[in-house]
């Protein structure tokens, strides 16, 4: 176990975006993204809706055709990439329990076959970390948005990732959920996992992130949260009219 942990620590990758550009149907979604996300650090990605945060992650996962290059620089052999999507929608009537969902993701043995007892136990342990082990037999569709988000978090931790990508993990969470999430993030940080994390809650970013990157079509701000999250930089990031910062009012920033 200790060995594995050490391996994870050593094996976190650096992610390098090299002049990444993404155009869909004539619209430029991302341009000139040059970014280096150091291994073992927590990187927050912020920006307005439609600014390209989710597109950047889709490009990172190889799901959209982009130009430029995205490299994972693994110190050793390629490790595991974990992904926590934005709260997924499930049909309420789909007869898939939380356990079924977890099994489907982790096992090649069909979810409708009985699995090894130890395997169920591993999944229950992961669910326990997000406070969902007592709801393992609930249907996915019957969970609240926050509960579903916790399940997504639990699957992202299995097996232990070297790099974890999170797409607005706190959006649907209540206060308790947010605390559970922050504690998990902290423990992943301590293990030296590379984290890339889309977040709207800027105070959470300030508390937890090592670097923050503001994205609106291209990179608008980047650096340590203390320095990068200046009022002017944020006003410009969240504005629709990227003109001289002093001409922008606070209302425009929220509009």
């Amino acid at each position: 176990m200790t060995n594995r942990t050490l391996l994870t620590e050593a094996n976190a990758p650096t992610i390098v975006f090299d002049n990444v550009q993404l155009t869909l149907g004539g619209t430029t979604i991302l341009k000139q993204i040059n970014l280096r996300l150091d291994a073992g650090k927590t990187h927050a990605l912020i920006g307005p809706n439609g600014g390209g945060k989710s597109s950047l992650i889709r490009a990172l996962l190889g799901q959209v055709p982009h130009t430029g290059h995205i490299h994972f620089q693994w110190p050793q052999q390629e490790g595991r990439l974990g992904y926590v999507p934005q709260a997924l929608e499930f049909d309420r009537s789909l007869p898939m329990t939380v356990m079924d969902f977890m099994v489907s993701l982790q096992s090649t043995k069909p979810a409708f076959f009985r699995q090894k007892h130890a395997f169920y136990q591993t999944i229950l342990n992961a669910l326990e970390r997000v406070g969902m082990s007592d709801k393992a037999q609930r249907r996915m569709g019957a969970l609240s948005g926050g509960e579903r988000q916790r399940v997504m978090m639990a699957q992202g931790l299995m097996p232990e990732p070297s790099v974890l990508i999170l797409d607005e993990p706190m959006a649907a969470l209540d206060d308790t959920g947010a605390q559970v999430f922050e504690a998990l993030l902290q423990s992943l940080k301590d293990k030296g996992t590379t984290l890339l994390w889309i977040e709207h809650d800027l105070s959470a970013v300030k508390r937890l992130a090592d670097t923050v990157t503001g994205l609106r079509q291209t990179i608008r701000l980047h650096g340590a949260p203390d320095k990068a999250l200046s009022t002017d930089a944020l006003l410009s990031l969240f504005s629709h009219t990227p003109q001289p910062p002093h001409s922008i009012t606070l209302e425009a920033a929220h509009g």
């Binding site: 190889g62 799901q63 992904y83 999507p85 997924l88």
Partner: peptide, 21 residues
């Protein structure tokens, strides 16, 4: 069907989640 069952199911939920796996 049996060999691919879980993968068929997961890929129908979310393409990114499937890609990460």
């Amino acid at each position: 069907c049996v060999v691919g069952y879980n993968r068929f199911i997961i890929s129908s939920f979310n393409a990114e989640l499937a890609a990460a796996r």
